[in-house]
């Protein structure tokens, strides 16, 4: 029998205003333990404000933040021990070596001496940076620096790893490494990953997605639920005549060597296939993409949603 995982993050009715701007407006959501949680929204939607409040960097106007069973108002330092953050841009000291950087940051969590060396060794193996320890962070490549950023976030073995657009500007190899590490941490340590990203294919792999718009929760659910709710299905038909596709009486678009028919849901797709078996000899059915979900929910496209 499997047990339902606990909520590791509970945000209730969170609000934050900067002057005339309501950055976060009555926001509530839950993140389950061990989950890959995607937090989506265009710039200015309230993602960073929410994360900054969670990390104790910003005060909140209203609402409550509970992380790992602790209230932010009562246990800010204990909550900080639960969170590891990988920022969009590296915030390590470029003039110091990797070792000096990690040693100085580990000390802030009370990790010294043997405990530090042991953790460093584990992380160096996990992230493959053992040969970089004596090099200045400023002299590392973007991918190497990213690995050190992740190591820094994992130094104190946090329960929740916050990844703030972690793959922006990374080469495919480092991106792959990052996601492999995240997968291993989730599998091995049941670590919860809180992800903000502009890349919808990354969000599509999440267990749960929250979409913010104008500081408010615009939509939430699993990627499947969101796709079912906000986009239809697409049937791609191969080797058919356009007149016969047109005769179906449903919206479609011509591709180079096929036609893509839009239907409201999988049930309607099935009905169409059953009613026109002679037409559906060579075809594919696919759900809408997270880009379509985001566009349908917010009416906006995420910048950087497509990448080479």
């Amino acid at each position: 029998m499997t047990t339902m995982p606990n909520n590791v993050i509970e945000i209730s009715h969170l609000s934050k205003r900067f002057g005339d701007i309501q950055a976060v407006d009555d926001l509530s959501f839950r993140v389950k333990e061990g989950e890959l949680f995607a937090f989506l929204g265009i710039n200015g939607a309230g993602k960073s404000t929410t994360i900054n409040i969670m990390c104790g960097q910003l005060s909140k106007d209203k609402g409550s933040v509970n992380i790992s069973g602790m209230d932010l108002d009562n246990c800010p330092d204990d909550i900080k021990r639960c969170l590891g953050v990988v920022f969009q841009n590296s915030v390590l000291d470029k003039d110091l070596t990797v070792l000096d950087n990690l040693r100085s940051r580990a000390a802030l969590y009370g990790i010294y001496g043997t405990a530090f060396r042991r953790r460093l060794s584990e992380l160096a193996e996990l992230l493959e940076f053992g040969d970089l320890l004596k090099r200045s962070v400023g002299k590392l490549s973007g991918g190497q620096r990213r690995r050190i950023d992740i190591a820094r976030a994992l130094l104190h073995d946090p329960k929740v790893l916050i990844l703030d657009e972690p793959t922006t500007g990374l080469d495919p190899q480092t991106r792959r490494l990052l996601w492999d590490v995240v997968a291993e941490l989730r599998r091995g340590e049941n670590m919860t990953v809180f992800l903000t990203t502009h890349y919808m294919e990354e969000a599509a792999d999440a267990d749960f997605v929250v979409i913010l718009d104008g500081g408010k929760l615009a939509a939430d659910g699993t990627p499947l639920e969101l796709k079912n709710r906000y986009t239809g299905d697409f049937i791609t038909l191969y080797g058919v005549d356009e007149r016969r596709v047109e005769a179906l009486g449903v919206p479609y678009e011509a591709l180079r060597d096929a036609y893509r028919v839009s239907v409201a849901n999988t049930a309607e797709a099935t009905k169409l296939i059953v009613e026109n078996p002679e037409l559906f000899c060579d075809y594919e059915i696919a759900k809408g993409k997270m880009d379509d979900v985001f566009l349908a929910v917010t009416g906006k496209k995420l910048t950087g949603a497509t990448r080479a």
């Binding site: 104790g56 900080k80 390590l92 000291d93 940051r105």
Partner: peptide
């Protein structure tokens, strides 16, 4: 300026 301050204040220091 570099953001290191933010990284330091993320810790329980």
């Amino acid at each position: 300026v570099t953001g290191a301050r933010r990284d330091l204040t993320m810790t329980p220091v």
